[in-house]
């Protein structure tokens, strides 16, 4: 077959070898680009916020003050783009996208159960119950990250008092919106919907317990639980129901969503407690988002022990976690 190829057309050995090397080099480059592309798709970290040069609390900082000197406000885009909100998605980056069209108005909230004045309020009636206050709270997620958030809202106690609780009211049960058409995550049964939460009456009436309708000086965004998000700063974040539609005063401890899902991990009380390790979570340290990687030791009651420890006097918090 090769008999009719003239000798002058045979590729010289040197050219052949250098071509081979060129192709091999190109092959390496192409494969590295492909691997890099697959990796970038698989391990996309999403946007990264600017960081403050915060530091962890040191010996002697104390933790009693509502906000200590070591607390710097979390960048607002972290607050609005890193959301645990399973009604929309289990991926924390998704609620900001999926909740974009969610309209928190019109909205009404029913207050019922063991109260003298059960009623249903629309949002404007509810907001006129008490003046909005700004409260800067540490926010601690059970997963181990924390933020510092300037909430707007008023004490839940103002709403409860207006409904005139009866003697039999021992607990408060919160129910979040059930509407799979507006909350696509509810089409999946990762949790039992609607989301339900609860507090003991004295916890609900505590002056730190805030019914929030805003943050960073603006109305709450849908991905942050608009229009109403309960904030209990000494408890893990999941205790704070979002998009609340019903508040019922009851005489027995109500069922709560994460406790139903995994009682060993999520207790009814779920006070922030560095000394209790559950199967999924060690709570000794926390990551303050927006800071450089710098573990802070977790504070008992999230640093609000001075204000709330009395609520739990005489209880075994290792048992009632």
């Amino acid at each position: 077959m090769n008999g009719n190829i003239p000798a002058r057309e045979i590729t010289p050995r040197e050219t052949f070898l250098s071509r081979r090397r060129l192709l091999q080099t190109l092959g390496i480059g192409a494969s590295v680009a492909a691997t890099g592309g697959v990796y970038a798709w698989l391990a996309d970290p999403g946007p990264s916020p600017y960081r403050t040069s915060g530091r962890g609390p040191r010996e002697g900082d104390g933790g009693g003050a509502a906000v200590s000197m070591a607390d710097t406000l979390t960048p607002p885009e972290t607050f609005t783009h890193y959301n645990n909100y399973y009604e929309f998605s289990t991926d924390k980056r998704d609620p900001a996208l999926l909740a974009a069209g969610f309209k928190p108005r019109p909205w009404s909230v029913t207050v019922d159960g063991r109260v003298a004045k059960p009623r249903t309020l629309d949002l404007d009636q509810l907001l006129s119950l008490a003046p909005a206050e700004e409260r800067v709270y540490r926010h601690r997620c059970v997963e181990g990250w924390s933020m510092v958030i300037p909430w707007l809202g008023f004490p839940l106690a103002a709403l409860l008092k207006a409904a005139e609780p009866l003697a039999g009211a021992k607990f408060v049960a919160f129910t979040s919106l059930l509407d799979p058409a507006r909350m696509p995550g509810q089409k999946s049964s990762v949790l039992r919907w609607p989301y339900v939460e609860g507090l003991r009456m004295d916890e609900a009436m505590h002056p730190l317990t805030l019914l929030s309708h805003g943050a960073y000086g603006e109305a709450l965004l849908p991905q942050n639980g608009a229009p109403l998000h309960l904030v209990i700063p000494w408890k893990y974040g999941f205790k704070g129901a979002k998009a609340i539609v019903r508040i019922t005063l009851v005489d027995t401890q109500p069922a709560t969503t994460w406790n139903l899902y995994s009682p060993a991990d999520y207790g009814f009380y779920s006070n922030v407690n560095p000394s209790i390790t559950r199967p999924r979570f060690s709570q000794r340290f926390e990551d303050r988002l927006g800071e450089t990687v710098d573990r802070r030791p977790t504070l008992a009651f999230n640093g609000y022990a001075e204000q709330v420890a009395d609520l739990y006097r005489g209880m075994d918090l290792a048992k009632d976690y």
Binding site: T35, G144, R295
Partner: peptide, 24 residues
Amino acid sequence: NGAVPVALLTFAAWRDRLGYNPSA
């Protein structure tokens, strides 16, 4: 190619591009 991910991860860490929760 096995070294590509750790190279890109190191580069991202150096540029502080590890998302909202770098530890996680």
